[in-house]
Every structure is written in structure tokens, then in C-alpha cells.
Amino acid sequence: MIPSIPQPKFYKGLYSTYIALFFVYLSAPLIVVGVFAFNDSLFPSMPWEGGTLAWFFGNEDPYIGIFNDTKLLESVGVSAFVAFWVTVLSVTVGTCNAFLFERSKFPGKNLLYIVSLSPLVIPGVILGISILVFSNAIANGIEEAIGWDLEFLRPGLFLVIIGQFAFVTTITTLVISARLRKFDVSLEEAALNLGATRRAALWTITIPFLKPALIGAGIVAFLMSFENFNTTLMLVGSDAPLTIAMFDRLKQGSTPVLNALSLLLMVVSGGLALLSVFVQRDSKN
């Protein structure tokens, strides 16, 4: 069934209807989340009680809007902090890995490449518990040996950052490698022939070429970290990142303040998504 093959109108209509229904299915949950952010009711459910902005700006109990909900705002801060470090670490290591895999030859490279893809096939919960168990073993070992209690190896933000970094790095490595593969090495050679040092050639020729991939990988890393749940769940301590805080609220049943927050998240991550699509598209030309 392609446009150049004539088909009965009935089938064409049926097919289009199916596609339309699919997009209704795709958008329905997101639309209701957004719409109920404006419902003047204590629960994010029917009936519709009229519009309000209280779930954004409200400041009197129980109408506490998102901009006055200190607990949720704090957790947004925690998530941003975690995502920032995960992004910095994973883009840096991802860049090193890309150079290693694309530019150098050494025995065992293929095996190493497969191992570095493996975090993608390890369920997030298991990655979380394995890092939890291992860091706890190290912490206990150090405490027994020299009596230091290394607090950062116990569940908390450090472990959350490390755990997310463990799998996000695979993705940044793939994104940056794909771009580096397209790089024409003769450009770098030309720079070297013209008297540039290796460092200068790298910074003025190669890194600018990689920039779209670096930005794209950075955005993806930030979003993946910000939205991660499974790995974070197993490693979290007393400071809850946003996904964990929202999960707890959802389980208890919450006011539509969660809808307001979700709407803001959708706007921001939708914007970032479009940005990364355009950054990567420009780099193709």
C-alpha cells in the first residue's frame, strides 16, 4: 500500500482513521495532564470545576501552587544538580571513549566496545542494586580496615549521580562516536602540516566539528538523568530527586499541583527535544 498503487477508498479511509486514533492514543494522557492543571478541584480528576491558576501560583492551604510548594521545588533543584553532574561527566567520558573507539587500534577493542554497550541491556533496577551493593561493600571494607566511614558511598546523591552516569555514558559515547566517524581526518592532517600543534589542531578543527554532537549528547544526557526513575529509586538517600518525590506524591494521591508541575516539565523537555533535533539536523548539512 503506497501512493503509486491505487487502493479502494474504503481501505485508505480505514488506514487514515487508524493513524488518527493512534495519535489520539499518543496525545491523550499528555493532554489530560495539562488540562487538569487548571481544574479548580482538590483532585486531578473529574468533574471539571472551572478554571483556576491556583495550582501554579496559589499560596493558601490546600491550594498550594507549584511555585510555592517548597518540597517539590527543592526536589527540582536536586534533580537539576544531579543532571548537571551526570551531563558533565558523561559527555567528557563519552568524548574520550569516542576518540578511543574511532581513532585508535588496540587488542581487545571489539570486546571493550561490546562491554561498553552492555549498560543499555541491563535493566535500570539491577544497575542500581549492583552499584548499591558494591559501594556498600567498599564502604564497609574501608570502615573495617582504617575506621573511616565514607558517607558518600552510602545511598545518596553521589551514588545517584554515579548510577545514572553508568548508563548515560553509553548513550553519549554512541552519539559522539557517530559524529566523529564522519570527520575527515585529512582536515586535521592539514592543520598539522600547516604547523599547528596536536592540541591546537584538536581544539580548532576537531572539537568545533564535534560541537553539534556534544550539545546533542549533553541535552540527551540531561533529560535522561532528570527523568530517570529505576536506577535512582535504588540509590536514593534522604534528598529526593523530582521523579522520586513525584512518585511518592502520586502514591499518596495528590492535588493537581502535580499536573501544574508536569505541564511545566512537558514544556521544558518538549522544548529541549526540539532544540536537540534542530542542532543535530543542522550538523547533517
Binding site: 494522557p29 499528555l30 489530560v32 480528576s45 473529574m46 533529560l223 527523568e227 513525584m246 516539565l265 523537555s269
Partner: peptide, 29 residues
Amino acid sequence: MCLIPFWVSELVRTFGWMILLRESGVISN
């Protein structure tokens, strides 16, 4: 359009389904 919803956190998407499917939810009404 297929991709955009998946940049939104899984939590938000699941929350959307809870609002749709619950007893006092949109579909029930």
C-alpha cells in the same frame, strides 16, 4: 509527533493514564 511524547518523563505519562482510567477519571465519566 511520534517522538515528542517520549521526551516527557515516564512518570508524567503514567500520571496521564491514571487520570484517564481511574474511577473518577475522564473515560469513566
